[in-house]
Computed example of a mutant assay.
Amino acid sequence: MLTLLFYIFIAITAIQVIYFLIFGAFAFAKTKKSKQYDIPVSVLICAKNEAKNLETLLPELLQQSYKNFELVLINDASSDETLEIMKRFQKSTNNIKIVDVENNEAFWGNKKYALTLGIKAATNDFLVFTDADCVPTSKHWLTEMTQHFSSKKKIVIGYGAYAKKKNSFLNLLIRFETFMAAVQAFSYAKMGIPYTAVGRNLAYHRDEFYRVNGFVNHMKIRSGDDDLFIKDAATSKNTAICFSKNSFTISEPKTSFSKWFQQKRRHVSTSSHYKFIHKFLLGTFYLTQFLFWTIAIFLFCTSFWQMALLIFAFRISIQYFILGFASSKLKEQDTLYLLPILEIFLVIIHFGIFIANLTSKPTHWK
Rank of each mutant, 00 (worst) to 15 (best):
T3V: 12
F6G: 04
I8M: 11
I10L: 14
A11Y: 13
F20K: 15
L21Q: 02
K33R: 13
S34Y: 12
P40E: 06
V43N: 02
L44E: 06
K48C: 10
E55P: 00
P59C: 14
E60K: 15
Y66P: 09
N68G: 04
L71F: 06
I74Q: 07
S79F: 03
S79T: 15
M86F: 14
F89W: 07
Q90H: 04
K91S: 11
I96R: 04
I98S: 07
N103M: 08
E105N: 13
W108Q: 09
L115A: 02
I119G: 11
A122D: 10
T123H: 08
D125F: 05
L127G: 02
T130L: 14
A132V: 02
V135Y: 08
V135A: 09
T137D: 01
S138F: 04
F149M: 09
S150M: 03
K154N: 12
G160S: 14
K164A: 07
K164Y: 13
K164H: 13
N167M: 10
L170G: 03
N171C: 10
L173M: 12
I174V: 13
R175A: 00
A182R: 12
A182C: 11
A185E: 06
I193F: 06
P194H: 01
P194E: 08
L202D: 03
H205K: 10
R211H: 10
G214F: 04
H218E: 00
S223F: 13
D225K: 03
D226L: 00
F229E: 05
I230P: 01
I230H: 06
S244C: 08
K254G: 04
Q263A: 11
K264S: 10
T270Q: 11
S272M: 06
S272W: 09
K279L: 10
T284W: 01
L287C: 06
F292H: 10
T294W: 08
A296Q: 12
A296P: 00
A296I: 00
F298D: 05
L299G: 08
F312N: 07
S317W: 12
Q319F: 01
I322M: 05
L339V: 01
H350Y: 15
H364L: 09
W365E: 13
K366L: 14
